[in-house]
Design a protein around this nucleic acid. Structure first.
Lengths: 353, 353
DNA sequence: CTGGCCAGCGCAATCGTTTGCGTTAAATCT
DNA sequence: AGATTTAACGCAAACGATTGCGCTGGCCAG
């Protein structure tokens, strides 16, 4: 046996229970209060170097792990934040989650993840339960442009930062991808390939991402001297394949000619793929498609999807950092962070013949 | 304003703080102990119906939410379990997580999710931190066949159930897919298509899933009267695309003829796809491939991947149920649950020409 | 009429930490 | 040398809930 293995406490314990602060205090021959101060780096200067050393040694040999529950009760801080997402099953979110947890972990924080399935009622109840668990802040990925519940929470002083999407209220800090530039990149790519009639399958206009990308699309086509034809824009009810497919069908049925599609996101583009298969349309020969997000395994699709890569991991990491900043300094001015995106050209886009 | 909105406490509060049990007791004109008993359904019979009613009414009008931290400290129960997975980013896991949370939520439990990235050291430290957070049990998806750490935890009485994979020790309950049947289905499907020389890209033999599927593969080919040629089996170092690709290359380089591959899982099959592209091999014309798991978006691949569908959501749900059972009744006999799988035939498999 | 029982409730300890305050003894100043 | 600061530490009260135990008063039986 190695001398100091942390998992099973090496030293003698009181009664089979994990050692408490009192146990290490006793072992070090001091009072629990002193042990507490010795163990906490920020109060360690209150005890002599010698006793601090003794206490820390005792803690190590006993395998002492502070009880976060007791600590939370006293300090009213839980070292815990809530993470509110629509659905973990959407490949968009796991990288964000990992990014968040990476920075949280380094600061001794952890995250509670809840799924709302885009149901406002469920969102309320899950957030209520998060708050009763004393989370110190929220990272929210379910924002809609008009979102009174979130606004109310913010007014109540609940610390939060939005990811991916925003509300209309700019007072709530958020970190998102640079959607406008991404769309501009996508349009420019298609224009470079010779396309002049480009359609847009917009995301739901209830979300900031949906309207920002749609607006950026119109700007971009005009910037290239193309006609801004509203018949070439159709809005999807949700950010998923089914609604992407429905929108594609409607677009096709409008019979306004076009040769390329800028999809609101990758899932919507996948919906287009389904309709192409349905109707025997070949991509990219007849219609080029570009997605948005660069979710995993897009390179293995038929055809590999050209898309705009957004740094999901970084979005999560930055959001977590921002939230921790807000918690540390509540007077902090809210900031909005825009993360750069890049174009990933694959085989779903081709030169106009 | 509606008379009783739960989020912002409606009644008067002490000092801007959320109301405590004592506040409720005071409002109802009873002692905190009585209020506690009145509010808890299982102790409610200890107070008179009339006082119970008064207390509950006071709690509602004050918007009282019990403080789970204080409760946990006293009861040493956290209504919390730990979920240990390799990497949330692997599309295998989100559905399992959702399944788990669905049943947990109904019982008032929540899950802490930690990622180990398959690093044993990280696994130890994350599980230690989970335990210090007083989780009541663990759902573990990172089991290796030989896994002394998990065994030790189990011996220490840590309640846990394994998902997807198992240890050699059968004393630890687990819920997995019926891997053997799945592989048999895959082999039969290929045999029905006329294939006689079938290869297997096995998962790592350090995992139960890897060895069970490999063994099932050999049994299946023999059952069909085919030759069990060990040159047609190569083990992947990990369950991912890169190692799947490496294994595929090795298989090809062995120059033992074969016309079909049973991949250990979908990710490994995707690795094969990469190599096919590399070497100009066409699938399914030259080589048929079947995967395992049926992860999302496989139907949009080039070609759509034939695979074995495993009910990930159910696996999670059953595991959670099993863990809650173990917590409720610690004397419970460990069970191993095998969930049925189904064949999903798409276009990566074709009749032998 | 007295003793015993029980329903209903309050008292106070407890869970493991943190922290304001008081106490001691050593160190510094005049 | 005596007065005063200060470093180091202990005491005890919190944080908010749960729970064993004891007390009260009403009820019934003997």
């Amino acid at each position: 046996m190695s001398p100091n293995q942390p998992s099973p406490p090496a030293g003698e314990v009181r009664r089979g229970q994990p050692p408490t602060l009192r146990d290490v205090a006793e072992a070090a021959g001091v009072h629990a209060a002193t042990a507490s101060r010795a163990l906490n780096p920020s109060t360690r200067r209150l005890v002599s170097a010698e006793t601090a050393r003794r206490v820390m040694k005792a803690a190590k040999t006993l395998g002492y792990q502070p009880n976060p529950i007791a600590r939370s009760l006293k300090t009213a801080k839980s070292s815990t934040i809530g993470l509110v997402i629509p659905d973990l099953t959407n490949p968009l979110f796991p990288p964000i989650v990992r990014g968040i947890e990476n920075v949280l972990e380094a600061e001794g924080y952890s995250a509670w993840i809840v799924n709302t399935d885009n149901d406002p009622e469920r969102e309320r109840s899950r957030i209520d339960s998060l708050r009763s668990r004393q989370v110190e802040g929220l990272i929210v990925a379910t924002a809609r442009l008009d979102h009174p519940f979130l606004e109310k929470l913010h007014e109540q002083g609940v610390k939060m930062v939005l990811v991916n999407r925003r509300t209309e209220n700019l007072a709530i800090p958020c970190v998102t991808a640079d959607d406008a530039t991404g769309i501009a990149l996508a349009v420019r790519h298609l224009v470079d390939l010779g396309h002049t009639r480009i359609a847009h399958l917009a995301g739901p206009h209830s979300t900031s991402t949906g309207v920002v990308r749609a607006r950026a699309f119109r700007h971009a086509v005009r910037d290239h001297g193309l006609e801004d034809d509203s018949r070439l824009i159709v809005e999807c009810a949700h950010w998923n394949e089914a609604d992407g497919a429905a929108a594609t069908r409607e677009l096709l049925d409008r019979a306004t000619p076009f040769t390329a599609i800028v999809a609101g996101n990758d899932l919507i583009a996948l919906g287009s793929y389904d309709v192409f298969a349905e109707r025997g349309i070949s991509c990219p020969e007849e219609i080029s498609v570009v997605g948005f997000n660069d979710m995993p395994y897009l390179d293995k699709l038929r055809p590999p999807l050209t898309t705009v890569r957004v740094p999901h991991h970084d979005i999560g990491a930055e959001a977590a950092r921002m939230l921790l900043d807000c918690i540390d300094d509540p007077t902090r001015h809210p900031r909005s962070l825009l993360l750069p995106v890049t174009m990933v050209v694959r085989a779903s886009t081709a030169p106009l013949r």
